Amino acid sequence: MRHLRGNLTTLVTTVLALALLGVAAGFVWSALAPVSQYVITDTGPELVDLETQTLIQADGWFAVVGLVCGLLSGVAAYLLARRRPVAALLGLAGGGLLAGYIALLVGSSAKGTIHASGPGGVATTASLGLTAHGVMFAWPVAATGIFWVVEFVVTYRLRGQA
């Protein structure tokens, strides 16, 4: 029973810690990613520049922030919870997904203001969003991957010493 309680504590603590880190990651993404310029017309919002790369750049910055946070959280989880690897990995996977979603919510609500109005409509910047939803997996994949890499390196060295 004590073993189960310890695993559950590790799992929940990891998920909650990553959820809090997701809030910070959302603000970082919001600060780094460019926003797209839209014009609000009678038919709805339309991109000012149809050839803009800002939508792709926002996805790229989200992936970079997710990868960095995943690498840091994977190493931290290994250092703090290596005695409970299954619980730590489950926490990294679930918590990484949750943190990515929270980062998306926070980052997408941190930007978006009306800049000017004109005869063709109201010019505005839209809130950030993702067009490539696969980048949501950057955090949990990086976190679990680095956990296993560190585990392999450490156990490989220990086997070589024996």
Score class of each variant (00 low, 15 high):
A31M: 13
I56P: 00
Q53S: 14
L50H: 08
V28K: 01
Y38K: 07
V65Q: 01
A58V: 08
V68N: 01
E51S: 13
D59R: 02
P34T: 12
V39T: 13
A31C: 07
V39M: 10
L20H: 01
A33P: 10
A63P: 04
G26W: 03
F27R: 06
T54P: 02
G26D: 05
V23R: 02
A19C: 10
G60A: 15
F62M: 08
A24H: 03
V35I: 09
T54Q: 10
T41I: 10
I40R: 11
V28W: 13
D42T: 13
L55F: 14
A33D: 10
V64Q: 01
A24L: 15
L21C: 04
A19Q: 02
L18C: 04
W61N: 02
L18D: 00
S30G: 15
W29I: 05
V48H: 01
T43W: 05
V39L: 15
A31Y: 14
Q53C: 03
D42C: 05
S30Y: 11
Y38M: 11
V48Q: 03
L21Q: 00
T52I: 06
L32M: 15
L18F: 04
T41E: 10
L32D: 09
W29H: 05
V68Q: 02
G66A: 10
V28P: 01
T41P: 05
T41G: 06
A19G: 06
F27L: 15
V65N: 00
D59L: 09
G44R: 08
P34K: 14
A25P: 02
W29Y: 09
E51H: 13
T43Q: 12
Q57M: 14
V64G: 00
E46M: 12
A31V: 12
V28N: 01
A31W: 15
W29Q: 03
A33N: 12
A25M: 13
A24I: 15
T54C: 04
D49P: 08
D49G: 06
G26E: 04
V68S: 03
G44P: 08
A31D: 14
V28Q: 03
G66Y: 02
E51G: 11
A63W: 05
T54L: 03
W29N: 00
S30L: 12
A24P: 02
F62Y: 14
D42P: 05
G66R: 00
L55I: 09
G44S: 09
E51I: 06
L50C: 03
E51Y: 10
I56Y: 10
A63F: 14
A58N: 04
G44T: 11
Y38C: 07
V48R: 00
A31Q: 11
Y38W: 13
V23G: 01
W61D: 02
L21M: 11
L50W: 06
Q57N: 06
G66E: 02
L67S: 06
V39D: 05
V35H: 05
T41F: 06
V65H: 01
G60N: 09
A58Y: 03
A24N: 03
L50N: 09
G44M: 07
V64A: 12
A19V: 15
V28R: 01
G66V: 07
L47N: 05
Q37F: 07
L55D: 08
W29G: 00
